[in-house]
């Protein structure tokens, strides 16, 4: 396939530097995302973790250039294989989005058009961006459906979305996201609505396709146990800011931020069913209520007065965190 973005010097994959997203104007303006920096190399997976309202889906929308009305990227840069996406014109960004970035959502039924057959929905972007004729597009769609493990693919090509089960719909979504062999795949809670066996099947499928196609993957979830299994690096988001990030191996060996700890200990484990789960009282603040100090402070078990004064300094290297009273270690 024709490369859309001409290769440029610099590392392959996605680099995000100091990304900020704001809503509103003038005195009413407020940030929903603040100072996010991360990179995902080709063939690597970043686990983006947080509760609902932490800004993880907003981050994905910003990367795609699909922010809701009133939102804008207020700071920072987003580079995909060396191309600065924040500087692109709207049509150029649309082309990049169509060809270079694929996305799968939590609810495949609402992301599929109920009045078009699966073949039409998969083939359409291929004809639009891949420049193929109808027959080639259909063949391509069939190949993709087989690739994502839809049984009896040839017969199901002309079915409508409602004729598929939840797991099969998610496979169809994956096929759609992969039509143009994107360089970046964003998976936003792709398995939250699915049964455990189907969830395992789908996550393994994404992993396999990622290795085969050399894609960068951003895996958005609220469940750290899935990140431990499927991601190479982790970024924990709280109220629009990263509180801890780093390589998965280092992060899971010793998570330092109290919030990461709480998320990790909220997961029920079969080995110790009697051990009490950690639950954090309250909810994350809304963007209008963000304070200048540590945003987790009101819910933090280790909070002290200085936590409220200024945002904590970054500590650590590749695995780093923003906390004045980290768990474990002597920092």
């Amino acid at each position: 396939m024709r490369a859309v973005i001409p290769p440029k010097p610099g590392p392959a994959g996605l680099q995000v530097q100091d990304l900020g997203v704001s809503f509103g104007r003038g005195r009413k303006a407020f940030d929903v995302i603040d100072s996010l920096s991360f990179q995902v190399g080709a063939g690597e997976t970043l686990g983006l973790v947080g509760e609902s309202g932490s800004g993880k889906s907003m981050t994905a929308a910003a990367l795609m250039g699909l922010l809701p009305w009133g939102g804008r990227i207020s700071a920072g840069s987003v580079r995909l294989d060396g191309t600065e996406l924040t500087q692109l014109s709207a049509p150029a960004l649309r082309a990049v989005r169509g060809r270079e970035i694929g996305m799968i959502f939590q609810n495949p039924l609402s992301s599929l058009n109920p009045s078009l057959t699966i073949a039409q929905q998969i083939a359409e972007p291929y004809r639009l961006y891949g420049g193929a004729d109808a027959q080639a597009a259909r063949t391509h769609a069939l190949d993709l459906l087989r690739e994502v493990g839809v049984p009896d693919a040839a017969r199901r090509l002309d079915d409508y979305p409602h004729q598929f089960s939840g797991g099969m719909r998610q496979r169809v979504m994956i096929a759609m996201a992969l039509v143009c062999h994107p360089r970046l795949l964003i998976a936003d809670e792709p398995t939250t609505a699915l049964d455990v066996i189907t969830q395992a099947q789908i996550l393994r499928l994404i992993r396999r396709l990622q290795k085969a196609l050399g894609m960068a993957v951003i895996f958005i979830t609220h469940d750290l146990s899935l990140v431990a299994e499927h991601a190479d690096s982790v970024m924990v988001l709280y109220a629009g800011r990263a509180v801890e990030q780093g390589p998965a191996e280092a992060f899971f060996r010793a998570p330092r931020h109290p919030y990461s700890q709480a998320l990790l200990h909220a997961i029920p484990r079969l080995a110790k069913p009697e051990e009490r789960l950690s639950d954090i009282d309250g909810l994350p603040p809304r963007p209008q209520e963000f304070s200048k100090g540590c945003r987790f402070a009101p819910r933090c078990p280790a909070v002290t007065p200085e936590c409220l004064n200024a945002y904590p300094q970054r500590q650590g290297g590749a695995h780093h965190f923003y906390c004045m009273h980290p768990v474990g270690g002597s920092a």
Binding site: A200, S225, L226, E229, R269, L270, A271
Partner: peptide, 14 residues
Amino acid sequence: ASLMDALPLMVRRG
């Protein structure tokens, strides 16, 4: 056994 195997390793005690 399959239901257990499908869980993330962290949950099914490795």
